[in-house]
Design a protein around this nucleic acid. Structure first.
Length: 142
RNA sequence: GUUCGCCGCCAGACGGCCGCGUCCGGCGCAAGCCGGCCGAGGAAAGUCCGGGCUCCACAGGGCACAGUGGCUGGUAACUCCAGCCGUCUCCAGUGGCAAGGGGAUAGGGACAGUACAACAGAAAGCGAACCGCCUGCGCCGGGCAACCGGCGUCGGUAAGGGUGAAAAGGUGGGGUAAGAGCCCACCGCUCCGGCCGUGAGGCAGGAGGCAUUGCAAACCCCACUGGGAGCAAGCCCAGACCGCGACGAGGUGCUGCCCGCACCGUCCGAGCCGCGAGUAGGGUGCAUGAGUGCCAGUGUCAACGCUGGCUCCGAGAGAAAUGGCCGUCCUCGACAGGACCCGGCUUAUCGGCGGCCUUUGCAC
RNA sequence: UGGAGGUUAGUGCAGUCAGCAGCAUACGGGUCUGUGAAUCCCGCGACGUGGGUGCAAUUCCCAUACCUCCAA
């Protein structure tokens, strides 16, 4: 199985994040919130974005470490599970210092939970209602 | 003796698998793939100072404002560093000083002016008499008298008591009715000239009997320094849209004000406000520099230079790269992640290594 | 990257040219009432930390920690 993590597997622009926030499958856990949004084609690779606020984690070293943990889990396992989706992992609290495995389990559970929910729209932007909602239903997800 | 004198260095190691970023080479129409090199710190941090570099008139004058404040040196520069001076303090030492050692030190000016000094105390800043001490005078009492005691009063007096953080030079002696720099010695202070030192200052001498209280990290005065913005600075390439309405004679370049200068504009209208619309792509700046280490010579107490030779110099992203798992070992691994770049300061930090001490420090 | 401000009682705030630490509310006790609230009286409790200046520091200065806000 391909476990690489090229630039095409990442979210690069603020617009990409905004798209995920506008219409997403959401599941919140103890430490993170997982947001999913279907891409145009099912066959497209999943893309990952990670958000860690300075307020939730104060030191830069810890923020980098958390991002690396999430990336590692996405690269090895989560990538195949959420194929065809854009994923944003938003931290809401700092996990325990040695909580790498714990965090991976939490994200895995939240991703599956989010796939099972209906997409929620946030039509606060001016083009929110213009788009005819091309997102497919999550019932088709594996 | 749990961060124990001074100086310097390191920041778990090795192996395997998977993975990330720039660059180079190869392949591919392209997306990308394969291989290779390299890939965070001593603080990268806080942003407390100082520069470099850019653009704004190559940067102007004055006020305001801000900063600095012993001297000399170092440095590109500094609120940095070194040495020295003064002051305070501790140790040691002495009969007492002095010589010696450690530590702290934002340390110009208080006859330019203003403000403040609570409480206590008689008096606290155009200097003071509460208790005392003393001469004289009056009254009373005692005594033959000299005189003694008490009370009152006009004065003298800063030695003693008491208050205070601070009471007007200090100590000792002389002197006096009692006292007092009133006089004398030493110390201190002020002034004068002399010598030494680049200087801050130091040394001894002479003169003056000596009301200059403290506070300027209160305002202030003096001297010196400071133009503004910041790599999202700035430069280049490519590309899109450049419409409507209101106000409008000034606007912008420096922040508060004045002057000066430059540019744009004064109804064919700069600018600004409210909408609408569009773009937010690439390159450069972007890393070889006030560089690093060693050796030799040389200047210096030192900080730090100078000359010559050799050596090492390899992060440069653009939502943003150093990680995960497994194994072995040990002393079980701290604080912590570049974003234009340097020099300092400050703060965080499990530990380990080396050097220097005939000066054994720093604290108890 | 550049700049501004704040930290005082459990909570929200006063306290400018230094000598007292205050107000409201909350809390505890009492008063009142058949009970509770309101009222009235009493009480409890604080200057972020470390240095410096000064006789004396919440106040002035320096450093530090944390928080908030602004501009691009």
């Amino acid at each position: 199985m391909d476990q690489r993590f090229p630039p095409s597997h990442r979210l690069h622009h603020g617009r990409d994040y905004s798209r995920v926030f506008n219409r997403q499958h959401k599941a919140a856990g103890r430490h993170v919130v997982v947001l999913l949004r279907a891409r145009e084609e099912r066959a497209l690779d999943a893309r990952l974005g990670i958000m860690v606020a300075v307020k939730t984690v104060s030191t830069a070293v810890r923020r980098h470490q958390l991002k690396r943990w999430v990336r590692e889990f996405f690269r090895t396992r989560l990538h195949e599970v959420v194929r065809g989706y854009d994923v944003v992992v938003l931290f809401r609290a700092d996990p325990p210092p040695e909580g790498h495995q714990l965090l991976s389990d939490e994200i895995s559970a939240l991703a599956n939970k989010a796939l099972a929910t209906k997409p929620q729209g946030q039509s606060r932007s001016r083009d929110g209602g213009r788009r005819p909602a091309p997102a497919r239903q999550p019932t088709g997800a594996p």
